[in-house]
Simulated scan of single mutants.
Amino acid sequence: IGDSHDPMVLAVPGDIGQPGVGRRLVDATLERFGRVDTIVNNAGIFVAKPFTEYTDEDYDAVTGVNQRGFFELTRAGIAAIESHGEGGHVVTISTSLVDHANSQVPSVLASLTKGGLNAATKALAVEYGSRGIRANAVALGIIRTPMHAPETLGFLSALHPIGHLGDIDDVVNAVLYLEQAGFVTGEVLHVDGGQSAGH
């Protein structure tokens, strides 16, 4: 991540899947801004392969980013939130493939890791609710980003009952809703064009 000229943005280079990086992000945030109020676990790796074709390297990469990154950043972040005693929020980005596997998108490692994060979200909500810390997740369908080649967009759109991809604003709006929804915790909010309902 490059450096930003916006004083309200702090860019910290690092691979979130590597030990110590999550803690470093929180330490840098505390140094610059003095506190942590909300954690958004957005980093993720998605590798679609038949299960028996996954390599040990695929496993290490996906679990490193999707799970170690979540674990280290959230552990350090919740400790920082607790230190100011005014409560806070953890939002984790997940996938609807956890709820509705798709034979056209073989992705067991996504289900393995993100399914664990959905369960961890509920566990955190219960563990920290009495301390004013909420935990929620946003389970996504396919979002239009530069990672998707233009020639795949028709196929990807057809994977959603609604018939088109989501936009980044759809994700942002879901996170902002959860940020403001003080009575919502332990929720996995599906922003997926109906994928989790079936197809």
Rank of each mutant, 00 (worst) to 15 (best):
G2D: 15
G2M: 14
H5N: 14
D6Y: 04
P7G: 07
V9S: 09
I16M: 10
G17V: 06
Q18E: 11
P19G: 09
G20F: 14
L25K: 14
T29R: 03
L30E: 06
L30D: 06
E31I: 07
R32A: 15
V36K: 00
D37N: 13
I39Q: 01
V40F: 07
N42C: 10
N42T: 07
V47E: 06
A48L: 13
K49C: 15
F51S: 14
Y54W: 05
T55S: 14
T55V: 11
T55R: 03
D56R: 06
D56W: 02
E57L: 11
E57H: 05
D60Y: 05
A61H: 15
A61P: 12
G64W: 01
V65C: 12
Q67T: 13
R68H: 14
F70W: 07
F70T: 03
F70Q: 01
F71P: 08
T74A: 07
G77C: 08
I78G: 01
I78A: 06
A79W: 04
H84Q: 05
S94D: 09
S94H: 00
V98C: 13
V98P: 03
N102Q: 08
S103P: 10
Q104D: 10
S111F: 03
S111Q: 12
L112M: 12
L112C: 07
T113H: 00
K114V: 04
G115N: 02
L117N: 01
A119L: 15
A120W: 02
V126D: 09
Y128S: 14
G129L: 03
A135C: 15
A135W: 01
V138Q: 02
A139I: 00
R144A: 12
T145E: 02
T145R: 04
T145L: 05
P146Q: 03
P146E: 11
M147C: 11
M147W: 06
H148V: 12
A149Y: 10
T152K: 04
L153K: 04
S157Q: 01
A158I: 11
A158K: 08
L159D: 03
L165C: 08
D167F: 10
D167A: 09
I168P: 05
D169C: 08
D169Y: 04
D170M: 06
V171H: 04
A174C: 14
A174D: 03
A174F: 05
A174P: 12
G182E: 15
F183G: 08
F183I: 07
V184P: 01
T185G: 13
T185P: 13
G186D: 08
E187F: 12
L189K: 10
V191P: 15
D192T: 06
Q195M: 15
S196L: 01
G198N: 08
G198A: 12
H199G: 10
